[in-house]
Simulated scan of single mutants.
Amino acid sequence: MCRDYLRPALLILASIAVGVVGWSGHVLLLPVALGFPLLWSFSRSRSVAALVSAGYFLAASRGLPQGVATFYSSDIWPGLLLWLCASLGFVAVHLVLWTNKESVRPFRYFLAAVIMTIPPFGITGWAHPITAAGVLFPGWGWWGLGFMTAGLAGLVTRIWPAVAIALIGLWLWTAASWTEPHLPNGWRGVDLKLGASLGRDVDLHRQRDLVATVRNAASDGARFVVLPETALGFWTPTVARLWTGASGDTDATVIAGATMVDATGYDNVLVAIDRNGGSSILYRERMPVPGSMWQPWRSWFGESGGARADFFTNPVVSIGGRRAAPLICYEQLIVWPILQSMLHDPDFVVAVGNGWWTEGTSIVAIQRAAATAWAKLFAKPLVIAFNT
């Protein structure tokens, strides 16, 4: 009787450890997440597979309750509710597709991995083990993604020890020679530490401080300066005139986050302000944060508000004669936005975020690690700009 309970308990504890370590925010630890499919396949019943899936997902996204509480200035309960609700999709997919038939188990896990990559389940497809492809197969591009997928399927077969040894060998090899993605020539990402005031404090003094920050970066030779998500606050004609007027005093083109509001809702965007005094909307976020930003249920009740999700539009943007793959905040935690962008073979990746609300959690570190892994997989330069 004790043995019947010991094995499931050990599997669940191991899945929690895999989620915590794999998604600790250190890019070279991402391959630890490959332990999840192994533990899922070791489950001897559907209920144990569900608990293993829940343990992994909840551990990997453990910063969400505290982050939500900080964002809404509330107690922990709304964050806990969102945390549990977000896990339902991941658990349901792996619950339904679990099987004790070894012959079909690789196909079932492959199907689960694909489902958690693309909408609708991919909308909350955090902590996807395939993100580790950038650590194990840096520079291999789509071939690396294919080998990573085959490796994940191989971990749920009888030959899993051989597959695990091969993947561990690759992990050690790449870790020994690891280098961070380099910046594109002439580009500079500016990290800020302005907390919750960024994007909310939009007075003239704040805007002038940001202009001065851009000028300092440009004085070091940067021709393109990237500011974090929502750095400019609401993008209005007044703010546009201020920045286009200031751009005449510098040789740098500014790429900055902003918010565009209308009667039906708002867009989370990146704007480009060039050295010739022009400005334009460069990118509209494809997948805002579900719940706190993207609230599609409002339209069901005839209400307006919430951020718009542009899903599969503008996967790459042109700037300075080159093509960039933009990722705003939440898009760095899920898989399909970066893969959609890479289908268009961009020249580099631009990742921005405003993570003031994640203080005390590893969320921003995880976003950085994921963006770094994807840039390494496809051998693309990476520009990162975060506010904390």
Rank of each mutant, 00 (worst) to 15 (best):
G19E: 02
T213L: 13
N268C: 02
M148L: 04
L282R: 06
P161V: 07
V269A: 11
L111I: 13
S73T: 06
P337T: 12
H26K: 10
G248F: 15
V254Y: 01
V269T: 15
V350A: 00
T236A: 12
G277E: 14
I319A: 14
T131M: 09
I328D: 00
S341I: 01
L58G: 06
N387C: 01
L210H: 04
P119W: 09
A33K: 04
A252R: 01
S362K: 10
R3E: 05
P37S: 01
L11V: 02
L51S: 13
V317Y: 11
R223G: 07
I168Y: 07
P31G: 03
G233Q: 09
V21Q: 04
I363D: 06
G22D: 08
Y72G: 09
A153T: 10
L13F: 02
D201L: 14
R62D: 04
I281F: 04
T372N: 15
R368M: 09
F57M: 07
C85H: 04
T238E: 06
R223K: 05
Y283N: 03
A60K: 01
K193L: 06
L58N: 01
A113D: 12
I273Y: 10
A54Q: 08
L167Q: 10
T179C: 09
P296E: 12
V91L: 06
F121L: 12
G248H: 15
G139R: 11
A175V: 00
G248E: 14
R322M: 09
P8G: 06
